Simulated scan of single mutants.
Amino acid sequence: MSAAHKGEVHLVHLYPREMSIYGDLGNTRCLAARLRWHGYEPVVHGHHPGERWPAQAHLVLGGGGQDSGQVRVQDDLDRQADRLRELAADGVPMLMICGMYQLFGEAFITVEGRRLPGLGVLDVTTTGNRTRMIGPVVLDTDFGTVVGYENHSGSTVLGPGQQPFGSVLHGEGNNGQDRTEGARTHNVVGSYLHGPILPANPRLADGLLEIAARRVTGEFVPGELDDRIADEAHQRQVVRLTGRRR
Rank of each mutant, 00 (worst) to 15 (best):
L14T: 01
T28S: 14
L11N: 00
E18C: 02
G50E: 11
A55R: 15
G39D: 02
L31S: 06
V44A: 04
E51M: 09
G46N: 11
R34G: 01
L25E: 05
G50S: 12
H47I: 02
A55H: 12
A55D: 15
Y40D: 06
R17C: 08
M19V: 12
A55T: 13
H48E: 12
G46F: 14
D24N: 02
D24A: 05
R52F: 02
V12H: 01
R52H: 09
L11G: 03
V43S: 04
T28W: 05
G26C: 11
M19S: 10
P54C: 10
H47K: 12
L35E: 03
N27G: 08
H10S: 13
E51H: 15
G39K: 03
G26L: 13
P54H: 10
R34N: 02
G50F: 13
L31F: 10
Y40W: 08
E8M: 02
P42A: 06
G39Y: 01
R52Q: 13
Y15P: 09
H48R: 14
D24G: 08
Y15F: 15
H13K: 08
E8R: 12
R29T: 06
H48C: 11
G7R: 06
G7I: 04
E8T: 11
V12P: 01
S20F: 05
G26P: 10
N27D: 14
N27W: 07
M19L: 15
W37T: 06
Y15M: 07
W53F: 15
I21W: 03
G23S: 12
L11T: 00
Y22H: 11
P42T: 08
S20K: 05
R29C: 02
T28E: 11
Y22I: 03
P54L: 09
S20M: 14
I21L: 15
H47T: 00
H45C: 07
H38F: 01
N27Y: 09
L11M: 03
G7M: 07
V44P: 03
I21S: 09
R29V: 14
L25W: 14
E18N: 10
E18W: 05
L31M: 11
H47D: 00
G50N: 13
G46S: 08
G50K: 12
N27Q: 03
Y40M: 02
